[in-house]
Design a protein around this nucleic acid. Sequence first.
DNA 1: TATCTTTTGAGAGTCTACTCTCAAAAGCAT
DNA 2: ATGCTTTTGAGAGTAGACTCTCAAAAGATA
Lengths: 197, 197
Amino acid sequence: MSDRPGLRERKKAKTRALIQKEALRLFREQGYAATTVEQIAEAAEVAPSTVFRYFATKEDLVIVDQFPPFVEALDQVPPEVPPIRAVRMAMRAMIEAQTPQERADSLDREVLMLTVPELWAASIDNVTGVATTLRERLAAREGRPADDPGIRNVTGAIMGVMVGVWTDWVNNRDLDAPAHLDAALAHLEAGLPLPRP
Amino acid sequence: MSDRPGLRERKKAKTRALIQKEALRLFREQGYAATTVEQIAEAAEVAPSTVFRYFATKEDLVIVDQFPPFVEALDQVPPEVPPIRAVRMAMRAMIEAQTPQERADSLDREVLMLTVPELWAASIDNVTGVATTLRERLAAREGRPADDPGIRNVTGAIMGVMVGVWTDWVNNRDLDAPAHLDAALAHLEAGLPLPRP
DNA sequence: TATCTTTTGAGAGTCTACTCTCAAAAGCAT
DNA sequence: ATGCTTTTGAGAGTAGACTCTCAAAAGATA
């Protein structure tokens, strides 16, 4: 009854990964809209219909739900830690848990998502889902109702600051994104002071 | 040489407005994706090709650039006012300058944009444009470079808080959006305190 | 009214994501 | 090897956004 995946399963996983890899490469090289599913199929050496068997829509080739690990990390931060600091810590923990390869891949994918409007659209459910979950968790931590405006504002500000860092990073890939993210959250935590010269 | 618009021009404007009005109605009633351009044409009693003559894409039926008035309002706030407060004041000024009808219409359109992923995508250029402009103006006000991380964080937080209010409002249209927006910015201005029970 | 210009409708045509069907191929179990 | 199940490829088909063309309609001009 040992069920280590059989050849069939392994092959499926391989095909799936290959299709996605080729798709991302083509998207990067010629743009998302300019790449047809047919081209992807050809690059991955499968039939177009096979592509759709693995990914229901073209957009699904890019979208990944990266959130669960973050929530886990957040849940491990002791509840007396205030919200923004908790998010900061969870963020760090998550990033440190990734291998450099994983980190590079996920950042890569994020660039695509932030850069291509269609993808940003397709992932919006994801993003609002993240915001909602984050809000619920933070509310729970603080012993407040989920619809508390204060919690909503904190969550919004966190998301906004993160998007700010991302976009900066998209425009300048040399930036150390994790470090900037941490610094930005620290700044937010301090109440966003802007000392005048 | 007086050129008050002739009949032709007036008719064009009317047709354009009618098409857009019918489109928005249909989008509201049956959803964006479920509404075909053919239906819009039929509702507006024009040929489908006419719809495309007025609006290059289906998305263009919804998208409007609402930002310039806000920038103007912001520029009128004296430079010694700190950024978040300045935004707050500009926001208020802008809202108060609208007629109730205009206000209702623009809020209506915003719901659509926030609700329908395709539209959110189509307007993303607009949104990032807003963020960029806002960032530049705030940087100028504070006498800092446009790429200052502190300014980026403030801008991001402002945008994030605003989106938070919008989404709350989408889920509960009875909310007094302008009031909530103002309160949220005030909260942000105060450094997002969350006193524990 | 007669002529010139602009706008419109009709409709055929393109492109591409996505669906469906069915038979061939490939892994699987005995 | 033999039959059973799953996966695949081939290919035809649909839908809907968007394009193009051309002749008819309508506004402008004199």
